[in-house]
């Protein structure tokens, strides 16, 4: 995935650095264990607005059963969630709400943008549709598809798990920098 990525992308993800002394060794192992625990208990906040929300329901129901990945605990309070899944079109009217929810989530937090509407506005190049939620919140994983199949979302969650294991916490600061560059 990252090998043929064009320039402008973020640096490739690697495992957490191995430390020097005994204390470092212990702490690194601990860090890895924390990452491992984090990636296997992602509690999602389903920000389901539209069609993708219906496919998200599929992911949660019997056929796909997201609990196999430790993510079945849907939290409708942002303060208890650490994965924001934005499933569906976000309009300009909804944008402040999304930002508020994101701000209310405790660190570490991750964002999956499910479907093309959330990722870029999709085929709604229109007067009331946010052209990608990365205008509002930083996004960790984008999932294409309109709507993505449930497998595609699970695949994205697996990618995110890899990323969490590598030790990256959130994209917030780096995204803010990218966004600032884009505006100027």
């Amino acid at each position: 995935m990252s090998s043929d990525a064009p320039k402008g992308t973020l640096p490739a993800l690697g495992p957490a650095k191995a430390g020097g002394g005994a204390a470092d060794f212990l702490l690194t192992r601990l860090e890895e264990m924390v990452s491992w625990a984090r990636k296997n208990s992602l509690w999602p906040f389903p920000f389901a607005t539209a069609c993708c929300g219906i496919e998200f329901m599929s992911v949660a129901s019997a056929h796909y059963d997201i609990s196999r990945f430790g993510s079945e605990v849907m939290r409708f309070s942002p303060r208890q969630a650490d994965l924001l899944i934005v499933a569906g079109t976000v309009t300009d009217k909804m944008a402040p709400v999304l930002r508020k929810i994101y701000d209310q989530m405790p660190e570490p937090k991750w964002v999956i943008s499910m479907g093309v509407c959330a990722s870029s506005g999709g085929f709604y190049r229109a007067y009331h549709v946010t052209q990608g939620i990365d205008e509002i919140v930083p996004v960790d994983v984008y999932v294409p598809g309109c709507p993505p199949t449930p497998e595609e979302l699970i695949y994205a969650i697996m990618q995110l798990q890899k990323k969490i294991q590598s030790g990256e916490k959130s994209r917030d600061q780096r995204s803010a920098k990218l966004a600032a560059e884009r505006i100027s």
Partner: peptide, 28 residues
């Protein structure tokens, strides 16, 4: 209005058959 995706405006800028995918996303 939190999901006002401008269906009617979009259909004015597209061809008849191109509106079918937009229609799918009305009552999805």
């Amino acid at each position: 209005g939190y999901l006002h995706r401008c269906f009617e405006k979009m259909s004015e800028t597209h061809q008849w058959n191109q509106i079918v995918p937009y229609c799918d996303r009305l009552n999805y």
